[in-house]
């Protein structure tokens, strides 16, 4: 792990949006209805755009001449710093939406705190991203409530999704020295807002947060679940097979 906390932090932000953006984009052409297909593709597009900013910054801070593309396409799973939640498989539409909601509900307050930090480079990326993520959160919240408080079928699927994904949420706000260095006083605020918001929405969706208090972690240190390898293989094969290939 690098001794530059800002570099590590930019990698985490960029890897979160990259891995989630890559997963979500796989829905393009496959969503249950056209409007949702377009919405998923738009969200993925925003996330990939944000990735370019974060990984571009990380590459500059690292100072070894690596571009955002180099970081995205030429690192192995062990080098990725995304949280475990975003690498969980798409599953059904309900699982994809639940993963999105559990991420957006953290991403939004995180970016709000970052937009007010003293580091101008981080603040400007956050200021730009938070406007997009507001719409992501608005949409995922709306759909969690409608599907949770929907038919027996949709309610059951959303509860199954929540049961499977909740144990990956603790890593989002569990701050280590790198988070503390960048977020300073904002760490506690993000955790509080996350817990308040998710419990309020999940309650309104007539869903139940699982009783388990066990939370997986490891992604921020490069220790990932099985799901990340195949995702990276799919994403990186072109650059790995044809190094330097361009449009």
């Amino acid at each position: 792990m690098s001794d530059n906390p800002t570099y590590e932090f930019a990698l985490r932000m960029g890897d979160n949006s990259l891995v989630l953006g890559q997963s979500v984009s796989a829905w393009c052409g496959h969503a249950p209805i056209l409007e949702e297909d377009i919405a998923l593709a738009n969200v993925a597009l925003d996330l990939i755009g944000q990735t370019r900013m974060w990984l571009g910054l990380a590459g500059e801070l690292e100072g070894k001449g690596r571009s955002a593309d180099d970081l995205a396409f030429l690192r192995d799973a062990r080098g990725f710093r995304n949280c475990l939640l975003v690498e969980q498989p798409n599953g059904d539409f309900g699982q994809t939406l639940m993963r999105q909601f559990l991420f957006d509900a953290w991403h939004h307050p995180m970016l709000k705190v970052l937009a007010d930090t003293d580091d101008a480079r981080i603040a400007e990326i956050a200021e730009k991203s938070v406007k997009e993520v507001s719409y992501h959160l608005d949409r995922s919240t709306d759909l969690i409530i409608r599907l949770g408080d929907g038919s027996d079928e949709s309610h059951g699927r959303m509860q199954t999704a929540l049961d499977g994904l909740w144990c990956y949420t603790g890593e989002l706000y569990a701050a280590d020295a790198i988070d503390e260095a960048v977020l300073t006083g904002g760490v506690r605020k993000i955790e509080e807002q996350y817990k308040d918001y998710t419990s309020k929405v999940i309650d309104e969706a007539t869903l139940t947060i699982p009783e388990t208090t066990f939370m997986h972690k490891g992604g921020k240190a490069g220790l990932h679940t099985e799901a990340l390898g195949p995702l990276l293989a799919d994403m990186q094969i072109l650059q790995r097979s044809h190094p330097g290939a361009q449009w």
């Binding site: 949702e36 377009i38 997009e132």
Partner: peptide, 13 residues
């Protein structure tokens, strides 16, 4: 509103 995401990122449907 049908969807907050339309034919381009800047438009809703």
């Amino acid at each position: 509103c049908i969807s907050q995401f339309g034919s381009t990122p800047c438009k809703a449907h």
